[in-house]
């Protein structure tokens, strides 16, 4: 099982989730749960806190919000932080073995292109 660990990651935007819970039902491994605290709209958003996401996308397709869930297949969430120019801050980044120069910020979920000079 260690091989599949961290091979995929699901990220849920706290403010965009309406807490309907359909993704928690959809996840075949029961990895998602509704948070105990609520967001600025008063919803209890869904959160992914554990490990073991396989990137199947079930939560993504069952979610009614266009941008609430992002599924990173075959990506690692790096433990060290990196600078995100979109957020103008340091955040953990998603990285892929096949394209090491393309990163995704775990905060804004936007792509960070590393320039070759760096």
């Amino acid at each position: 099982m260690n091989n599949t660990k961290n091979k995929a990651h699901v990220s849920i935007r706290w403010e965009e989730c309406k807490g309907c819970g359909l993704c928690t039902l959809a996840c075949p491994l029961d990895l998602l749960s509704l948070s105990k605290s609520f967001n600025s709209h008063g919803y209890h958003p869904s959160v992914y806190e554990g490990e073991g996401c396989t990137g199947c996308g079930s939560c993504f397709f069952s979610c009614p919000e266009p941008g609430a869930i992002t599924v990173f297949k075959k990506w690692h969430l790096m433990t060290e932080t990196g600078y995100c120019p979109n957020c103008d801050n340091d955040y953990k980044v998603y990285k892929r073995e096949t394209h090491p120069d393309e990163l995704f910020c775990s905060n804004c979920l936007e792509s960070i292109k590393l320039s070759k000079v760096e």
């Binding site: 309406k18 397709f61 009614p64 919000e65 941008g67």
Partner: peptide, 13 residues
């Protein structure tokens, strides 16, 4: 960022 649809609405899907 979010739609006008209620939580769990079929339209969004």
């Amino acid at each position: 960022m979010t739609t006008t649809y209620c939580p769990g609405c079929g339209h969004g899907i």
